[in-house]
């Protein structure tokens, strides 16, 4: 085989293979970034007080902890009302498309697990007509302004990444700006 012939054969083989391979989900082919603003009103809340589990965990645990390091109690009682490490709280929200809350567009759920310094790690999902959007991140107790990372989505939000910015809105509402990137075509 001559050199030009071998090169032509090589390119032909490469071209043939390239045309027969499946397009693998058009990696990198995503829709332009999208922003969706929703207004959330709390619908249901459940706080889980794990005081008994903390107390049990002080005496029976798999670590070699010094009691002083884990004790957050005075006179046999915990100081204040927490939230303490291990507590968790569940929030259900109704979502609206506008600040006047005229048009309901879905629901949201936050499940937050408290760690230290009254900071919670929250896992949330926004259940919208076109799919689920998932976000998680840290939220200090009582904070109304926080940011979560978008970690995924389903259906119209398949492949979603980005972030959720939260700030207070009028009344008892919370505004969430959903910034989405990486959405599949």
């Amino acid at each position: 085989m001559s050199r030009p012939t071998s090169i032509r054969f090589l390119f032909a083989a490469v071209a043939l293979l390239a045309t027969t391979l499946p397009v693998t989900a058009a990696s990198g082919a995503s829709r332009p970034p999208q922003k969706l603003t929703v207004y959330a009103v709390p619908a249901t809340v459940q706080f889980m007080n794990h005081a008994d589990d903390r107390l049990r965990g002080m005496s029976a645990n798999p670590f070699n902890l010094k009691a002083d390091a884990v004790i957050i109690r005075t006179n046999g009682k915990e100081k204040g009302n927490g939230p303490f490490p291990g507590d968790d709280i569940l929030y259900a929200f109704k979502l609206f498309a506008d600040a006047k809350r005229a048009k309901p567009i879905g629901t949201a759920m936050f499940t937050c697990y408290y760690g230290f310094q009254k900071r919670a790690t929250c896992e949330s999902y926004f259940d919208l007509a076109r799919g689920i959007l998932l976000a998680s991140g840290q939220v200090p107790f009582g904070a109304s302004r926080f940011t979560l990372g978008v970690t995924g989505g389903t259906h119209a939000y398949l492949g979603a990444l980005g972030q959720v910015d939260s700030r207070p809105a009028s009344g008892n509402a919370q505004r969430f700006d959903l910034h989405m990137t990486g959405l599949a075509r």
Partner: peptide, 24 residues
């Protein structure tokens, strides 16, 4: 037990939105 305790003792005070019985 944690649920019942959380309803009685929580960090939200009077701002606490009680869980509707129908939710549970």
């Amino acid at each position: 037990d944690d649920r019942e305790r959380g309803i009685l003792k929580n960090p939200f005070g009077s701002d606490y939105l009680p869980t509707p019985p129908s939710a549970n």
